[in-house]
Design a protein around this nucleic acid. Structure first.
Lengths: 243, 243
DNA sequence: ACCTGAACACCGTTCAAGT
DNA sequence: ACCTGAACACCGTTCAAGT
């Protein structure tokens, strides 16, 4: 009965835009400052530690004052996710789409690692703002340079984003010690694995136990490049399309 | 100061294993039943609606009784994620790895769509249980059949999982109406896009506005298959390895 | 126009007490 | 061994009142 979907947060700008000139000399609270504080808090304590009350306390202000600059907590989360997306450095195009795609992927990874608490938000939230599309723009530019026609480029874009976000969220939300599976346990549980019908997992246990995230990420990017190469190669035939 | 990482939840079995025989005739509460109810609740109302108190109320029991069968709320969430993973149907191998890989991906998608609220949990939570490795086993079996050596298979596995989870979480957490971007707004904002330096986004707006999730997913799977084909093809040379 | 405090309807979890 | 209620320390958000 209780609809709980995130609000569209679409084209309409925030209902509570701050005044233009400085607000008469008050506390100087601002949507921007609220997000700044929220970002710092999440970076230090994690998403779960973000509460409107705690955020207000950190800012030395009453909890309810925040609602003058931000619709609600969900809007704060959306804002953080959009900031992350917007802060991804767009690498200059070199003309070598392989290199450019790799560079973009690395940029993405860098900001995700810098803000591990925010990264998962990017995946779940629907972000319609112009800011949030910076990555898409960069990726589409690269694909255009590679000769991928616009319609197909959109599909490729979605494929790339799915991998990037999937890989990065997995990475940032696995603790620094862990490696995606129970590192210590996997080896000893070898017999348990085999009796559970997990033959192949048992056989690969040694490799599953270790995980170099950077290398793994690069491997994935290589796979994407390979897929794209195959796609471009196969369309060599009907490529002559100049009207 | 406040560590809030999810607990390891590793090799050690739940601290609160239920009695073996029926519990003397009490309410018959069980970890399994708790998870059943939690699953139903999340499927109907969404993750945000899951609370220990509400869950207990639905089960007609005191809130604290749950803690006799479940460590805490996080453990419930972990349990749900593991159930999702475990419930993925493992397709029988046909010998055609392309077909088998596609079938596995589709199985994954089907359970994700059946439990949209749970899918995102799979990504963020560290799942070390044997149950959760069913998908990995299936994927590794397929890759083995395709002739991918164990060590490389693990990398490929991680690539596949990153894409699958990234794509599916994106799909389930975009509302049924929305399509990943602001469907209605994108067309009108064409000029805004161009002035924002989002040339390529503007050009692709028409294609970005529409999103057939099923087709998009299939496209991604095709890309994975293509990447794998390229990889297998290039190792044709040193393939003769029979001792 | 912005800030504030009290208030409402919730949370997860601990603990001592029951059976 | 399991269940229970009271209690603690929190939440997000509304609303009427302040300046």
């Amino acid at each position: 009965m209780k609809r709980h979907r995130a609000p569209p947060s679409g084209a309409a700008p925030s209902r509570t835009a701050p005044r233009r000139g400085r607000p008469k000399g008050g506390t100087g609270l601002t949507r921007e400052k609220v997000l700044d504080a929220a970002l710092a808090l999440v970076d230090q304590e994690g998403v779960d530690a973000l509460s409107m009350r705690g955020l207000a306390a950190v800012m030395g202000v009453d909890a309810m004052s925040l609602y003058n600059h931000v619709d609600n907590k969900d809007a704060v989360l959306d804002g953080l996710a959009e900031r992350l997306l917007a802060s991804i450095e767009r690498p200059v195009l070199t003309g070598d789409w392989r290199r450019d795609l790799r560079a973009l992927a690395l940029s993405f990874r860098q900001v995700a690692l810098r803000h591990p608490g925010i990264a998962p938000l990017v995946l779940t939230r629907q972000l319609g703002s112009l800011q949030a599309m910076a990555v898409s723009e960069a990726a589409l530019a690269t694909l255009d340079a590679a000769g991928v026609p616009p319609k197909e480029a959109v599909h490729v874009l979605r494929f790339i984003l799915a991998f990037l976000i999937g890989a990065l969220v997995r990475e940032v939300s696995s603790g620094p010690t862990f490696s995606g599976l129970d590192l210590d346990g996997l080896a000893e549980r070898h017999t348990a694995l085999k009796t559970s019908g997990l033959r192949h997992v048992a056989r690969a246990a040694r490799h599953l136990a270790a995980c170099d995230h950077a290398a793994e990420f690069e491997f994935g990017v290589d796979m994407m490049v390979a897929a794209l190469e195959a796609r471009l190669g196969s369309s060599r035939g009907p490529k002559r399309r100049a009207k």
